[in-house]
């Protein structure tokens, strides 16, 4: 693999995930390889249905891969089972998009945040309370005020803080954030993004940050990976990738963002097409049906990820750089 991170904590190798729906196969993740260095935030962007959430779940073994490896700190999670997988999972946590739906409405906040500790076998109630209070304070909530209350008493932003606290209570090393701010209002979104950055520094986390919003991803990521219809299009350092995208799809995504500046006229160059179905993805390059640069070679040959600039890789026969 070309993307050599110096000290990879998470390494995904040739991962393939497929679902069967009504006798048809959905090619959700097709031959994806990624490395995430210790202490790094890797942003994963793409439109709905591109396989980014499936990839996140497959990393955690919540989705079984058809083939490929998921190496976490040297251990292949795809081969682990039972207690040994559970032990590994404590070191990897997940934060979801809808903070309200991911909290049990009947339980109290203190119990919700303590549950991972119960499952992990922390028997001493004093110890559990100490840990819960610590993470609740860390995410900006007063443990004395919130522990006894229920999720419906909190706003979406506060529920996301609670979810973050719950994900941190076992001191994980790796956290997968799946669209953690897309259900939140603009003014709350900034608070949560700042909080994630603080938590990353405080607990020494490595993050896989999945989102559809490029600006949100750029705000928190060291490197960014762009996915389209189950395949990686481009991977590179955030600033470099946004300044000089190599893959036409990355360029299209950047161009399509509405800019809050009336002097920037909205672009008229966005192609009219929509992503094809992942049941029957196009041959060769999957983006070719919407790509202005596509030719016969793109239909016949799957482009491999290749170096286009230092640290930047694109899977394209006709890269922009």
């Amino acid at each position: 693999m070309l993307q050599t991170a110096s000290d990879p904590l998470m390494k995904v190798e040739n991962l393939v995930v497929e679902y069967s729906v009504g006798g048809k196969t959905i090619h959700a993740v097709s031959d994806v390889s990624l490395e995430i260095a210790r202490g790094e935030t890797l942003g994963l962007v793409g439109e709905s249905g591109c396989g980014k959430s499936t990839l996140g779940r497959a990393v955690l073994q919540l989705r079984q891969a058809v083939s490929g490896k998921v190496l976490f700190d040297g251990h292949d999670l795809t081969t682990l089972k039972g207690e040994s997988l559970r032990k590994m999972r404590r070191r990897v946590q997940l934060i979801f998009q809808d903070p309200i739906a991911s909290l049990n409405p009947r339980r109290r906040i203190g119990d919700i945040v303590a549950e991972p500790l119960m499952i992990a076998g922390v028997k001493d109630p004093e110890e559990r309370k100490r840990r819960v209070d610590e993470v609740l304070s860390a995410v900006g909530l007063d443990p004395a005020l919130v522990s006894g209350r229920q999720p419906h008493e909190f706003s979406g932003g506060q529920c996301q803080r609670i979810c973050i606290a719950r994900s941190l209570v076992l001191n994980p090393e790796f956290v997968i954030c799946d669209e953690p701010v897309s259900a939140l209002d603009v003014s709350i979104r900034a608070q949560i993004l700042n909080l994630l950055e603080e938590m990353k520094a405080r607990y020494g986390l490595t993050l896989l940050f999945i989102a559809h919003d490029l600006a949100v991803v750029k705000a928190v990521s060291d490197r960014v990976a762009v996915m389209y219809l189950g395949r990686l299009c481009e991977v590179g350092p955030s600033e470099q990738l946004f300044a000089r995208p190599a893959h036409p799809y990355t360029a299209l995504l950047i161009e399509a963002i509405p800019v809050p500046d009336p002097d920037v006229r909205p672009t008229q160059s966005v192609p009219v097409g929509e992503p094809p179905s992942p049941i029957a993805p196009p041959s060769g390059c999957r983006f070719r049906t919407r790509c202005p640069r596509a030719d016969a070679r793109c239909a016949g040959e799957v482009p491999e990820l290749r170096v286009v600039a230092p640290g930047q890789f694109a899977a394209c026969h006709h890269p922009l750089i």
Binding site: R189, A190, E197, A215, K218, A219, D222
Partner: peptide
């Protein structure tokens, strides 16, 4: 408070 593409990664956002 909007994240912007022309700002460097890891710049704290001026949240409300």
């Amino acid at each position: 408070a909007l994240p912007k593409l022309d700002v460097a990664p890891h710049t704290p956002l001026p949240a409300i």
